[in-house]
Amino acid sequence: MPIDRRTVVHAADLARIALTDAEVERFTGQLSVVLDAVARLAEVDTSAIPPSASTLPLRNVERDDEPRPGLGAEEALANAPRGGRDGEFFRVQEVLQER
């Protein structure tokens, strides 16, 4: 499946990454090569094969419902970017209109 500029721009939008025109150009070319190599997967007959999300022979891992103290607000907010803290809150610009 070939990849074109539009696909690259769309994926970058979904991933919320700003790309320059030069990057779009370069990535389109590079990713086309990679996807060509990946496309060979289509040749493999997997009609009777279940997908594996993990190789781990493990199921039902849970923990007890025991509350424990975490970080304090001060520690939580210590890494806030410049302008990203307002008192005990994280501060961001106006939330997107969608959603």
Partner: peptide, 27 residues
């Protein structure tokens, strides 16, 4: 529940001081 879904922070969040019931997981 008493604790959160994927971390042991208290789930009794209503009325708690802002960002006081947090840990690496839920942050």
């Amino acid at each position: 529940t008493r604790s959160k879904m994927f971390c042991p922070c208290s789930a009794t969040w209503f009325g708690a001081p802002a960002n006081s019931l947090v840990c690496p997981v839920c942050l």
